[in-house]
């Protein structure tokens, strides 16, 4: 297996706040990695460094073979291969659903129109949004927007998709639709990194689990084993709070 994302001694500061502390992490192609942890632990920061939305302060971060810390690296080239799905969807408000999915492949990949439309429609059908292609984002529910956002990422034919709390802003009844689409993405063999509070997804769909707290990776294990026998006291506390909620 080759690593598609590799952190080597990565540090990240926000002013005086040490958000990522000496991160060492290797993610292999095809892995589905869930990152869980308390809010404010830095897990969103961690995932946002992976496509350069957050710059790192020191160390090396190699994504699809390019070092993000190197000033000569063309970040746009990396982002062609690394999609991202956001908590608040971030669909283009001035474009229809179909345009949202077709725009980047058209202007970034220069994909011909016929082919572009065919691919866009294929993914929109897969996420169950083919009947809304002429709607604008504001006319859609959160769950629908998120499914379009995933189709938009898929249309770029990426090697990796980063999910930053993709279901956290959704009504409960919408969450399952989005998770279903994410399971489909996992089946395609696309590398996934998912910051999530969905313990069901983390346990059943992902094949690796990272427990993150205060800028550190505290546990990095098989999800089933983690949930049954957390190694650290911090993880035990975290899980007990979540499970008592159910």
């Amino acid at each position: 297996m080759t690593a598609i994302i590799e952190f080597k001694h990565v540090d990240k500061y926000y002013g005086k706040l040490h958000a990522l502390k000496d991160i060492n992490l290797k993610i292999d192609e095809g892995q589905v990695v869930s990152i869980i942890g308390p809010s404010g632990s830095g897990k969103s920061t961690l995932i946002r460094t992976m496509n350069g939305l957050e710059p790192i302060n020191s160390g090396q971060l190699i994504v699809t073979g390019h070092d993000l810390a190197d000033k000569k690296t063309d970040i746009n080239k990396i982002r062609k291969n690394v999609g991202m799905v956001f908590q608040h969807f971030n669909l283009y408000n001035n474009h229809t659903v179909l345009e949202n999915v077709m725009l980047a492949p058209k202007i970034v990949l220069k994909r011909p129109d016929d082919e572009n439309r065919k691919i866009a429609m294929q993914y929109l059908e897969r996420v169950g949004m083919a009947d809304k292609i002429n709607s604008y984002p504001r006319q859609l529910s959160g769950g629908q927007q998120q499914r379009v956002a995933i189709a938009r990422s898929l249309a770029m034919d990426p090697k990796v998709i980063l999910f930053d709390e993709p279901t956290s802003a959704l009504d409960p009844e919408m969450i399952e639709d989005v998770l279903e689409v994410m399971r489909y993405v996992a089946e395609q063999g696309i590398t996934m990194v998912v910051v999530t509070h969905e313990m069901g997804f983390a346990r059943k769909v992902s094949n690796r689990l990272i427990f993150f707290d205060q800028g550190h990776i505290l546990e990095d294990r098989d999800p089933g084993e983690f949930f049954d026998h957390p190694n650290t006291e911090r993880a035990r506390q975290f899980l007990s709070k979540i499970i008592s909620k159910d």
């Binding site: 982002r79 971030n90 770029m156 980063l162």
Partner: peptide, 15 residues
């Protein structure tokens, strides 16, 4: 979020 969405989608700043 609009800028982040576009940049993560592979667009340049100008695009």
């Amino acid at each position: 979020g609009q800028m982040e969405g576009a940049r993560s989608n592979g667009m340049t700043y100008v695009q």
